[in-house]
Simulated assay, not measured.
Amino acid sequence: MKIYFSPCPNDTFVFHGAVHGLIPSAPKLEVTYADIDITNKLAMNDNGPDILKISYGALPWVLDKYTLIPCGGALGRGCGPLVLAKENSDPTSLAGKRVAVPSERSTAYLLFRLWAKQHVPNGVGEIVVMPFHEIMPAVRDGKIDAGLVIHEARFTYPEYNLTLLADLGSWWEEDTGLPIPLGAIIARRSLDTAAIEKWIRESVEYAWANPEASHDYVMKHAQEMSPTVAKSHIDLYVNEFTAALGDDGFAAVESLLGRASAEGYVPKIHLSALKE
């Protein structure tokens, strides 16, 4: 079974058990590690992978082919995307400026568009898509005016002498009271999705029960991240919603995609489509 997810610590931590044959109910997995922009695009293809991690922001475009697996993904509080700049400034300074984002169909970009509509009345200028690990160096070097960053950038951006313009997670939580839906695990509707949900949840539970077992695997793919940062990344992004979306998780997804569809940013979907 072909599965695509990122090399980030939260994904490798979650899927370590299943990938290494430690979960009896899991099939043999053929893994490809890919940036979120790549998986968002792959999910649009008719011959896309069996299982993959995508942005919740890309979900409305693929629900005809894929179903949402209500575990294994990334939702949470205090873990939202950040808007970074080289110098201290207020949000209105982004008007007409070049902003780098990790994917045009990422949750981060969707949150950014909703936030910018409130805080940048005249609108930003050019949006430039680039791999998330290239964004902070580009802002630091003046190639981009501001950057929308995700993942471990929350912990490392001071090393690039960048300043925080906005924490979109804090904005979202204050505005809605809900967690932030970031990354979704999806599987082809033609597969036994109940069985997939079972072994993914078992892989999550195995990771929590054996937190050191995945250390070498996590660090091998952690893109030169320090063990301390990798652990902070896992602690932040692997949480109760990783084991099960639950009512709050589904409400968060519905709220995000409902707001986005009202603005015309994504196709309209119904909550029932997320649970089918």
Rank of each mutant, 00 (worst) to 15 (best):
G169C: 04
L182H: 13
E202Q: 12
Y4D: 10
R189F: 09
Y66P: 13
L178N: 07
G147H: 02
W115P: 01
G123I: 12
P137S: 06
D235C: 02
I23C: 04
P267Y: 04
H133K: 14
Y56E: 00
I150A: 03
F15T: 14
A153L: 01
Y109K: 05
V120P: 00
L114Q: 06
I269H: 05
A153W: 06
F15R: 10
D46A: 12
N122M: 12
V101W: 05
A209N: 03
L110M: 05
N122V: 09
A18N: 07
V139R: 05
L63Y: 08
A222Y: 04
V218M: 00
A251L: 14
H270T: 14
I269D: 09
N40T: 14
S190W: 06
S89A: 15
I196R: 05
K231D: 12
V120D: 00
H270V: 11
E212T: 15
D248M: 13
R259V: 12
P227G: 12
W172G: 00
Y237Q: 10
K220G: 11
I69C: 05
L178I: 10
N161C: 12
G78P: 15
D37Y: 00
I23G: 04
G123W: 06
V204N: 04
I38S: 00
E224M: 09
A184D: 01
P49R: 07
I196Y: 03
V19G: 07
D141L: 05
A194H: 06
T176I: 10
Y56M: 01
P137C: 06
A184W: 01
A85E: 11
T12Q: 02
N122H: 13
G177Q: 02
R77L: 10
D175P: 04
V204S: 05
V238Y: 02
V149W: 01
E263S: 02
P181D: 11
R77I: 14
E240Q: 15
V62M: 07
S103F: 15
L271S: 13
G258R: 12
S272H: 11
L42A: 02
F13L: 11
L256A: 00
I150Y: 05
A43I: 15
M44R: 15
D192R: 11
L42I: 05
I54K: 05
